[in-house]
């Protein structure tokens, strides 16, 4: 059983976390200048969850994520340029500007979607797992969802069927303490949502969501289990949302005292420290410089890419009886 990341994998995860962070930092600057459109949901401080979880999967495994999914996008192997172009509504984006930052999807990497309906990713991944089981494939499906989504009715329904039918699905509960502006303790009577796993006859585990290696290990174990046909797992990755709900969030409900310990446990910093010990500071600096350069080039290219032009084409008019 392989559940320990190699040094190369650690380097790659570090690279992807820095890409994610850098991408969001630059987006934040553009958002402040009013140059982005619609809300942007940042996952600063949560990079280890998406990147670590995706790194433990194969390219042909499926993953579903939330409206806050940049770390999953990057983690599953989407390019910074394609993501940025999509967020700026360009023809060169992953969805040619139609999906935008929350609803991005890419079949080639198995990243089947950000989703802006809270909780919608949970049955989505479960359905993919059902298909995998019927087709007798050795793939797995994974969903990264939040503590807010854990309170939806559909979460219960999907987990029950996953447990009942031993579907190859991994439920990664990214507990960042907030559902929009409402704290976890106002949404749930229990602190640890992983205890619910018992009710669905699946293992439930708590991991440090700010430790990319810990997330990797937990997901690697869960995927082995799923591939063996032993069914789903629930992994509760404890983390914290540093940057508020979105660019439209006026804030005021997250205190500095609450945030300080989490800032001290920054996942990228911790990954860097570990890597310096393994490969030396110069290599880590080079990884980070390359990541930043990749993001800078992504923005530069994307911002000069063309906008799409509206036309009634097959996917937009599939069910239109009348041509306008």
């Amino acid at each position: 059983m392989k559940n320990t990341p190699s040094t190369d994998e650690l380097k790659d995860m570090h690279h992807k976390m820095v890409v994610t962070r850098e991408l969001e930092e630059v987006l934040g600057v553009y958002a402040k200048e009013g140059k982005t459109r619609g809300p942007i949901h940042r996952c600063d401080g949560q990079e280890a969850v998406g990147v670590g979880a995706c790194a433990a999967l194969r390219t042909d495994d499926y993953v579903c994520t939330t409206h806050r999914g940049h770390h999953v996008y990057v983690g599953k192997g989407l390019t910074a340029h394609g993501i940025v172009a999509e967020i700026f509504g360009r023809e060169t984006g992953y969805c040619k500007g139609r999906g935008g930052h929350m609803l991005l999807g890419d079949v080639t990497t198995g990243m089947l979607g950000g989703n802006a309906i809270v909780g919608a990713g949970i049955p989505a991944a479960t359905g993919m797992a059902l298909s995998i089981q019927i087709l007798k494939q050795d793939r797995v499906a994974m969903v990264v969802f939040g503590d807010g989504a854990a309170q939806t009715g559909i979460c219960h329904e999907a987990m029950n069927m996953a447990g009942l039918w031993k579907l190859p699905v991994i439920f990664v509960l990214e507990n960042n303490e907030y559902g929009l502006t409402v704290r976890h303790d106002v949404q749930s009577p229990v602190a640890d949502l992983s205890i619910r796993a018992a009710g669905y006859a699946m293992p439930g585990e708590i991991v440090d969501g700010n430790d990319v290696e810990a997330v990797y290990r937990a997901v690697a174990l869960a995927s082995e289990r799923a591939r063996r046909g032993e069914g789903p797992s629930l992994i509760e990755a404890k983390t914290y949302r540093i940057k508020g709900f979105s660019t439209s969030d006026m804030g005021g409900y997250q205190s500095e005292e609450e945030m300080a310990p989490w800032l001290a446990r920054d996942p990228i910093q911790r990954s860097a420290e570990k890597l310096v010990a393994l490969v030396g500071a110069d290599t880590v600096a080079a990884i980070e410089a390359a990541a930043r350069a990749e993001v800078a080039s992504a923005f530069e290219t994307a911002l000069s890419d063309p906008f799409p032009v509206f036309e009634t084409h097959a996917p937009s008019a599939a069910y239109s009886e009348f041509t306008p």
């Binding site: 509504g89 139609r98 935008g100 509206f310 008019a317 239109s320």
Partner: peptide, 11 residues
């Protein structure tokens, strides 16, 4: 029109 609402501004 009978379609999903696209994100990009011109669309």
């Amino acid at each position: 029109p009978d379609m999903a609402i696209p994100y990009s501004e011109p669309l």
